[in-house]
Amino acid sequence: MTARVGYDDVEPGTELPARSFPVDRERLVRYAGASGDFNPIHWNERFAKSVGLPDVIAHGMFTMAEAARVVTDWTGDPGALVQYGVRFTKPVVVPDDEGAVIEVAGKVAKKLDDEARTVQVDLTVTSAGTKVLGMSRAVVKLG
């Protein structure tokens, strides 16, 4: 594992480059196929509304996958990830016409272990101004 970010080059508060990830219905269908999660709330508007949702919603695991990219793009090596966890707080609603955007920001919260060169990164994940993931944290091993 060879993260391109050095442990000595970061401090608590160091910001990771923020990213915006657009998501539309086609993206959700592709994700359903690749992941094997064919729950109709992720592609069938009629069904989603019948169970009380405002519209089709993104798979929580899709949102979690996009949020991780802020960390893995930063380290370069996705294998540098030691831990990754989230809480699903609100759904990402994906209307048919314009789709949605998942906004992800991250910063180094603390340095955990000088020997193992691990840091905790806290992520902020929102869509349409609403926080969609809570307790979104990663532990990464830096170079």
């Binding site: 990830l81 989230v86 809480r87 307790m135």
Partner: peptide
């Protein structure tokens, strides 16, 4: 789905 966590 409430929480999800991975330890690698």
């Amino acid at each position: 789905h409430g929480d999800q966590k991975f330890a690698y």
